[in-house]
């Protein structure tokens, strides 16, 4: 729900006032940007995709029901846009995105921010593993374990039933564990062969 302070902005935004909508979303920009970043795995893409999500939300603002939480509505659009982007990219690009993250040589020169985040070796391997998950699993992991949302919020954003959210999260964590274990074994083997 939106506070009465913002009701004037809502009216203006509904009439097509971009500046009013911009003021309305200002507090959500960083969160949306980060959720999208965690799903896409790349800061440059996150910038474009999150902006695309905001514009999409603005264009469809007439469909927003003020009785529902504005943030949930906005995050749902952001998550869907990010998932669509990742799927599109996978189709277009035969090189998997996971390789992009894991392989440091391929890293963008602008990805200093990412380096900060994945500075620790352990965190880096976990992030890489998250990026190797299927979109459906990655989304619930991002929302629950990285953004700290509860099951109900995740259910609202993804449109999945509560039970499905729980089971999907459990399976996602299981898969994540398997990937990390595999990567650890692989890196150990590589280390030995180098030695």
């Amino acid at each position: 729900m939106i506070s009465s302070v913002n009701s004037g902005l809502i009216k203006k935004a509904r009439r097509g006032d971009g500046r009013a909508f911009s003021m309305l979303i200002e507090n959500h920009e960083r969160f949306v940007f980060n959720v999208v970043y965690r799903i896409t795995g790349n800061a440059e893409d996150a910038r474009d995709v999150s902006q695309e999500a905001f514009i999409k939300a603005f264009k469809n603002f007439e469909s927003y029901d003020e009785r529902a939480a504005f943030s949930t509505w906005l995050y749902r659009i952001a998550v869907n846009t990010a998932i669509d982007f990742v799927r599109r990219r996978k189709k277009e690009n035969s090189i998997s995105f996971e390789d992009y993250i894991v392989d440091e040589n391929n890293q963008n020169s602008d990805s200093g921010i990412e380096e900060k985040v994945i500075s620790k070796e352990g965190v880096k391997s976990i992030i890489s593993a998250v990026n190797m998950l299927d979109d459906e699993f990655k989304t619930v992991i991002v929302l629950r374990d990285m953004e700290g949302m509860d099951y109900k919020e995740i259910s609202d954003i993804t449109g999945l039933p509560l039970g499905t959210v729980k089971s999907r999260l459990s399976r996602a964590r299981g898969k994540l564990r398997q990937i990390i274990e595999k990567n650890d074994i692989k890196s150990e083997t590589e280390g030995r062969s180098r030695a």
């Binding site: 960083r30 980060n34 965690r38 965190v123 976990i126 994540l176 564990r177």
Partner: peptide, 11 residues
């Protein structure tokens, strides 16, 4: 894993 993920920095 969840703890590490939870502690990832916000960009």
């Amino acid at each position: 894993i969840t703890s590490e993920l939870n502690n990832t920095e916000y960009l």
